[in-house]
Design a protein around this nucleic acid. Sequence first.
DNA 1: CTGTTAGCGCGTTCAA
DNA 2: TTGAACGCGCTAACAG
Lengths: 329, 329
Amino acid sequence: MVSIKEVAKKAGVAISTVSKVLNDYPNVSAATKEKVNAAIRELNYIPNSIAAALSSKQYGRIALILDPKRQTQAIDQIFMQYLMGALDKAKELNVEVETIFTSMIAGMSVEEITGYFVSKSIVGVVIYGLSKEDKVLQRLIAGQGFSFVVVDAPIVNPRTTAIGIDHEQAQYDVAKKTVLDDGCRRVLYIAGRRDGYVTEQRLKGMKRLVEDLGLTMLVRHGEFSEKTAREIAFQYAKNKDVVVCASDLMAIGAMNALTEMDIFRPVCGFDGITLMGYVGKQMNTIRQDFYSISSQAIQEVKYLIDGQAGRQVRMPYSIVKMHYKDIIC
Amino acid sequence: MVSIKEVAKKAGVAISTVSKVLNDYPNVSAATKEKVNAAIRELNYIPNSIAAALSSKQYGRIALILDPKRQTQAIDQIFMQYLMGALDKAKELNVEVETIFTSMIAGMSVEEITGYFVSKSIVGVVIYGLSKEDKVLQRLIAGQGFSFVVVDAPIVNPRTTAIGIDHEQAQYDVAKKTVLDDGCRRVLYIAGRRDGYVTEQRLKGMKRLVEDLGLTMLVRHGEFSEKTAREIAFQYAKNKDVVVCASDLMAIGAMNALTEMDIFRPVCGFDGITLMGYVGKQMNTIRQDFYSISSQAIQEVKYLIDGQAGRQVRMPYSIVKMHYKDIIC
DNA sequence: CTGTTAGCGCGTTCAA
DNA sequence: TTGAACGCGCTAACAG
């Protein structure tokens, strides 16, 4: 491996001069800068980021915490988009990212996770889909030992930023459109997992809608499972006018049930996953831009890390076949 | 950050002694070892892996190269399994992993990628789903500048190991079962992308089957697209007895076409993705254990990196509803 | 503007 | 069995 020393020798300058050229320091004459660059090119020199990190002390990676087990497998798609958004942004910002699945830290205590992070030089963390029941992560966040960005969870503190669309308003909007289109009055709402923040928020949106429009609503928890939603629809959809679901997957389950029962009810979903294409049915849904959300999340941790503390962030969302909106979490 | 120095001071020993305890060196008395460990515990000391890496010089990460764009989005699931398998294994082996999407290195030359890898201390690379047309990666592999493991591509050299199931045999087996179950003679085979190695291998399996059983076969390329497969089935399935597809997604497309045409033909797929559950139909398919394959891939790069050169690896696969087999790539 | 010097935190000889 | 000393490759004051 060719080191900075060899470059310096070849260019006939001091090591520190090479370093300055490398890091775009101001006080270097164009002449020597060119000399150094020439040597770098000739030797095909590539700086050792490890050494640079050790020396500069401003090293800090960002951990991405994903929890695929909590979701049905079909939602892998969402995680891929989260991942790509994060990795692309990380490369752009030139920060290193460590992908962590919750299975890898399951059973660890707050202290152990802290130790693990420290040993890996992790200073910022993005948590996707935090569960209300995950006390360990909750305490980790509360401890403020790292900079956090939580996606879709309403947690904020001096070192923690929350990000995501406004699930309450989004649920309100998509359900409203569906209800009004068909003049429905009796709503079956299939909510998500009880331990999810978004479940709560979306339910709130529904309650507001029911109030605003003077509807009646039956709420059941589908746990984000296609199968459960299917069963719920079987049991309750018959004497309702519309089925509103807190996820596309559940909407698919509900639809299948309706088809089997041979009755028609408008159904609406939430997420905008591609899977929708495979069921051959049409329904209203919220399309979230997971890539952008994740990209922005990385930007936010970076801000936090760089000390530009924690303001809330705005993200756009859209309802399929409806115009864009702009709402905050 | 508490450093080794403080631990040494607290324990009343030299830095090097602490280091020896840390790295399980032989010549340390139980007494001092305990003293040191006590200090470590008290100070809550966590070794700085960056510094350790720099010092020991035996640092090397593994890059994971994923190409999601080449596939339909529904296959994100496969990549998630690849990722999880790799990350879990990497943690077990205590090596660092860098996730790279091809979009991040698109347009880079071999030299640029090499530089990128070097700067990130990457010494081993796992490539998932290499395209025959990807000349840059091909040359990177041929250059043997890093240790490679290619998943599902038949490329081997002193620093490159190939891994995956035997696609030829697997395709042969699943198609044979499907054909024999219904006594079919005229086969419509919807193959994958022309630039994929697996496409070639699976096609080879089909040709052998056709020969062995004296069948007739029409081959069309569905490009791993549900839509294209659907169109192909529309056009050609009518006067065939069975539709064999090189992927589950295409099988779904073909099935939909058959349903719309209101004719029945046995269909078989390949992959074993969960998506299958959402179409409500049953079909034979190959179930690949992507998690294990990826896990093993990491193990193999590690072997290569550690100089335990490149033998081929065996992986199991199963056909849904058939017994397990064990075949190599 | 350039070079000298001192570390960053740790692994690793080599004396003692 | 221990510890002093050197160096990994680089950055960051500080002199010159």
